[in-house]
Simulated assay, not measured.
Amino acid sequence: MTRGIKDTSHQGRWHNERFRALGKELGLTLEHHDKLGWSVTSVPSNTRELYRDELEELAFVLVAYRRHEPGRKGGRKSNNNGVSAGCGCGHKIRVSRGAYDAGPIYC
């Protein structure tokens, strides 16, 4: 993207020869996949050694920031805990919203 090279086609699903060339330039090994183009990518040991410091830094940062993804607010939007309902004696139970809305809860 920085170089303005279009390295995919078919709505970004097919990696073309330009993607392969960029990968080779970085020392990656790329193999052709029948449905995804040049997408099967691996990092040879000599490339891993060349970029060792950068890879270690990326591994640390990805783990450190994985727990909170930008743009996500809070956790789940729903739960299965139901509604807390009780009767006059003080006993409480959890019931579905539908059961709670159907009428009073009695012992």
Rank of each mutant, 00 (worst) to 15 (best):
R3K: 13
R3L: 13
G4C: 04
I5D: 14
I5F: 09
I5H: 08
K6Q: 13
K6H: 15
S9H: 08
H10W: 09
Q11F: 11
G12R: 02
G12M: 02
R13T: 15
R13H: 07
R13Q: 11
W14H: 15
W14A: 09
W14E: 08
H15M: 08
H15W: 07
N16M: 02
E17V: 08
R18D: 12
R18L: 09
R18I: 00
R20K: 14
R20T: 05
R20L: 09
A21P: 06
A21L: 09
A21G: 03
A21F: 05
A21V: 03
G23M: 03
G23E: 07
G23T: 07
K24L: 11
L26N: 10
G27I: 08
L28G: 07
T29I: 03
T29E: 14
T29Q: 10
L30P: 04
H32V: 12
D34V: 10
D34K: 13
L36D: 07
L36P: 03
G37F: 03
G37C: 06
S39K: 02
S39W: 04
V40G: 00
T41G: 00
T41K: 11
S42N: 05
V43M: 14
P44D: 05
N46T: 14
N46K: 07
N46G: 04
R48E: 08
E49H: 09
E49N: 14
L50A: 12
Y51G: 04
Y51A: 13
Y51S: 01
Y51F: 12
R52M: 15
E54A: 15
L55M: 06
E56P: 02
E56G: 04
E57W: 11
A59F: 08
F60S: 12
V61P: 05
V61F: 08
L62C: 11
V63E: 12
Y65E: 13
R66F: 05
R66H: 10
R67M: 05
R67E: 14
R67V: 08
H68C: 11
G71V: 11
K73R: 04
G75M: 07
R76L: 12
K77E: 11
S78N: 09
S78A: 10
N79E: 04
N79K: 01
N80F: 02
N80Y: 02
N81A: 10
G82D: 06
G82L: 01
S84G: 05
A85G: 00
C87R: 02
C87G: 06
G88H: 06
G88D: 11
C89T: 01
G90D: 01
G90A: 02
K92W: 00
I93Y: 00
I93R: 00
V95Q: 03
R97A: 08
G98S: 14
A99E: 03
Y100N: 01
Y100C: 02
Y100D: 01
Y100I: 00
D101W: 00
D101P: 01
D101E: 15
A102C: 00
A102W: 00
A102D: 02
G103V: 01
P104T: 10
P104G: 02
I105A: 00
C107M: 06
